[in-house]
Amino acid sequence: MSDQPLLSVNDVSKFYGSRVGCRDVSFDLYPGEVLAVVGESGSGKTTLLNCISTRLEPTNGSVTYRMRDETTRDLYQMSEAERRFLMRTDWGFVHQNPADGLRMAVSAGANVGERLMAVGDRHYGNIRETAIDWLGRVEINEDRVDDQPRAFSGGMRQRLQIARNLVTGPRLIFMDEPTGGLDVSVQARLLDLIRGLVSDLGLAAIVVTHDLAVARLLSHRMIVMKDGHVIESGLTDRVLDDPHQPYTQLLVSSILQV
């Protein structure tokens, strides 16, 4: 890990009129680090994620990112063209609902290849080879390369979405409830896969989840949100084993023990 943060979030707030989306959130994310954002629904997790990932402009505060050329840039001072380029090369965004992140009417191969074509790859054979390679890495059989995602199961769609995002070798991935809506055995395999990919590729990731088990398994550090505020942050094991705030204690103690 480098001692320079990859992403710095400084006092980010988002107001929807007089309502608070999130307020005064600050943290640093280092290369290769996985940060979980947990909290109950409506606590501002997704708003925060959207503000950081340039999908929603914050009301105040700034987000800076260390580019591949080692310069640190304020995301909201960049041109829209640069932001969108960053979004499809150095970043990935895994949506909760795969239909939001995939093109459902084009084949799996084209879904994975789209980012390559967007950065100027114009050789069909190479694009297809890379797509098949990535499908293999997310455990999708080669013979499904020409099938449309609508013919895929929920778990396969989610894995395809991950392949589509990782094909350009990004350094930072945003995940919004990546295991939401999947049954537990599929969840377990997906988590295993994500954990493997993140450690193999040295990815940094911000994972939004309400599922503490997902946070425990994937993340190094976590922040706990309530009513738009960060109420607790620290190493994942510390927060889960020794929660300081009453709300975090409540959250941890409400995990169903089977």
Binding site: R84, R103, V106, S107, G109, A110, G113, E114, R115, M117, A118, V119, R122, Y124, I127, R128, V145, D146
Partner: peptide, 15 residues
């Protein structure tokens, strides 16, 4: 951003 146009051509060749 014209990567998408090639997605269509890719689909043609794949199909």
């Amino acid at each position: 951003e014209y990567g998408l146009m090639h997605v269509k051509l890719y689909e043609d060749i794949a199909t």
